[in-house]
């Protein structure tokens, strides 16, 4: 059943691949606003590049989170999933995996290009990609809680950033400073270890919390 869900969601995502590009394009536009707003000076950009890319990644993730459960809620398949005998948590994990594959992973893959445009010094590219690979699953996991809580609400799109962004702060701090450490030529394994630990923590909490949130959202 879980494999069937994975297959179904990937197929749906593939059929609507135009929509998948939206967060990516948003990511590119937002990050290119910073040189325009701050300064095109390569020295300055090199310093802020890590932070800019990571803030852009957070915002792009938020944008795509809204869709994690929304369509399924509207056409009734979410209800069907909650009525299946399998634990809802596992279903949430599949949904999160799909979200990461179609929304998180592409961010990590396109980030080096943006780093190039923002003049990120050479040492920063490796930690940028690794931190994105490691931390975008955290964004999907924590985000699923917000998506689950707001799925039945008409104003959910505005509410979700309020609920989720504060929880993203540790990710932002450690991920962007790992890039900074890489730029300065110092070791960044400690930062990545923290991100790994946080990923483990959210992997435990988020599916349970999201399953609860979905049950609440559907108990009209």
């Amino acid at each position: 059943m879980l494999m069937a869900l994975l297959k179904r969601d990937l197929l749906l995502a593939f059929r609507a691949r135009g929509d998948l590009l939206n967060p990516l394009m948003f990511f590119m536009i937002v990050t290119s606003l910073f040189p325009l707003a701050v300064s095109p000076d390569p020295k300055l950009l090199g310093v802020i590049a890590a932070g800019v890319i990571w803030v852009g990644a957070l915002l792009a993730t938020l944008l795509s989170l809204d869709l994690m459960f929304k369509n399924d809620y509207e056409d009734g398949s979410l209800e069907q999933m909650l009525l299946m005998p399998q634990p809802v948590m596992l279903m949430v994990l599949v949904k999160v995996l799909v979200h990461w594959l179609v929304a998180g992973l592409p961010l990590a893959l396109i980030a080096p290009l943006l780093g190039l445009m923002l003049g990120l010094p050479n040492g920063g590219f490796q930690p940028l990609v690794i931190s994105l690979l490691l931390a975008t699953p955290i964004l999907s996991l924590l985000g699923s809680i917000g998506a689950g809580l707001t799925v039945g609400l008409r104003k959910g799109g505005m509410l979700m950033p309020l609920l989720i962004l504060p929880l993203y702060i540790p990710v932002l701090i450690f991920a962007s400073s790992s890039v900074l450490a890489g730029v300065q030529g110092s070791s960044y394994t400690g930062h990545l270890a923290f991100l790994g630990a946080y990923l483990a923590l959210t992997l435990v909490i988020a599916p349970v919390a999201t399953a609860g949130a979905l049950r609440i959202s559907l108990a009209r």
Partner: peptide, 8 residues
């Protein structure tokens, strides 16, 4: 919903 959010 608020309980879940505050616990998280």
């Amino acid at each position: 919903a608020a309980a879940i959010l505050s616990i998280v």
